[in-house]
């Protein structure tokens, strides 16, 4: 068992009449890249702010490396934060921004400037030290914020949707870089995001938040392939649920079932109905969405309900797939991809 970097016990936060966090228990291991995933207002940012010390919990307990820090001020915690809007000091140069935490801790000037330069080199911003934050692009500011938070080598780094303001290309690039930096420095990263793809690609483990509670904690594969609740199944990946009558007919048992769109094959209706270890369902294509590398088919099942199927465009073009609209099709997928979603009693 690895050492625990962060332990949350019965954490609650109430703002006036609204309960932002309604009881969270969580252990985050040392050196882990841990994501908190959830829609806005699900309490993930509030949990992060409580770990940082910006908010004090209404109830519950926060431990960092085995020591209780629940009542401590932000400057008493060995935790640094990368803010959503970066929160760089506009009146300081990039280098002064990065060296600020060291200056506060009275690191001698020569040493802190050297460390600041090294930190800027780590995020590939050599030579930018003398600039002002206002002279940098969004991606560069983001990396300055990262360097500023990392330079003091905190035990835990908290990242509050740090990639939210970047465009898609830059975001994908930063995802890879963040992950590489995390592996290099070996610091525990707690990453808040509402982007399920981001969470899946970067994290060692993910906690899915909903309405102030954690719905599921697990590795990306566990979260994606074996969602513990209908909410997780819907929020992570495309919602593809079979319930009630249609589940009875297609799967042959009652309950709620989740099938990932890329596991479903779209065939002609006349295709062989029975194939061992496979489920099948017929229906009508109501919508075809051409995505470039793939096509998404929305199919209304004869048994009731709607499934989304994702097909790689191996040999098909946009004209080919458009012809599918309104046609009858047969969907087929392997039994092992039908996953029973536990429904809360």
């Amino acid at each position: 068992m690895e050492a625990t970097a962060i332990r949350l016990q019965g954490l609650r936060k109430v703002f006036g009449e609204t309960t932002a966090v309604a009881g969270v228990d969580l252990d985050i291991a040392d050196g882990e890249f841990f994501s908190m995933l959830g829609p806005s207002g699900s309490g993930k940012t509030t949990v992060l702010r409580m770990i940082a010390g910006f908010e004090s919990p209404t109830a519950g307990r926060i431990e960092l490396a085995g020591q209780e820090v629940t009542g401590l001020a932000p400057f008493e915690r060995d935790v640094h934060t990368v803010f959503q809007d970066y929160a760089l000091f506009p009146h300081m140069t990039v280098e002064q921004n990065v060296a600020y935490g060291l200056k506060v801790r009275k690191v001698p000037k020569a040493k802190r400037l050297q460390q600041a330069r090294e930190a800027l080199a780590d995020v590939r911003l050599e030579g930018f030290g003398a600039r002002r934050p206002s002279q940098l692009s969004g991606g560069q500011r983001q990396r300055v914020a990262l360097a500023r938070a990392l330079v003091g080598r905190p035990r835990v780094l908290l990242l509050d949707e740090p990639l939210g303001a970047l465009d898609l290309k830059l975001r994908e690039q930063m995802q890879v870089e963040l992950k590489a930096i995390q592996r290099e420095v070996g610091i525990t990263f707690v990453f808040v995001t509402h982007d399920q793809e981001e969470a899946l690609t970067m994290s060692d483990r993910i906690a899915v938040f909903n309405q102030g509670r954690i719905e599921q904690v697990g590795t990306p594969a566990e979260i994606y392939e074996r969602p513990a609740t209908p909410f997780v199944a819907g929020f992570v990946g495309t919602s593809n649920l079979l319930e009630g009558d249609s589940a009875q007919q297609v799967v042959g048992a009652s309950g709620t079932y989740s099938i990932r769109p890329e596991k479903i094959r779209v065939l002609k209706e006349s295709a062989e109905a029975d194939e061992p270890e496979h489920s099948t369902a017929t229906g009508t294509v109501v919508e075809v969405v051409y995505l470039g590398d793939a096509t998404r088919f929305l199919v209304d099942l004869d048994a009731g309900g709607r499934l989304t199927a994702l097909q790689q465009n191996l040999e098909t073009s946009s004209e080919d797939v458009a012809a599918y609209r309104g046609t009858r099709v047969r969907l087929r997928w392997h039994h092992r991809h039908t996953f029973k979603v536990p429904t809360p009693r």
Binding site: G53, A73, P74, F75, D85, A87, F89, P90, V104, A149
Partner: peptide, 24 residues
Amino acid sequence: NLLDASADLGARAGRTFRSVVVPM
């Protein structure tokens, strides 16, 4: 956020006031 960031980086209120609030 700037005040939070300053505290986050280890600055007490007095330091934040001198280094962030006053210059801004």
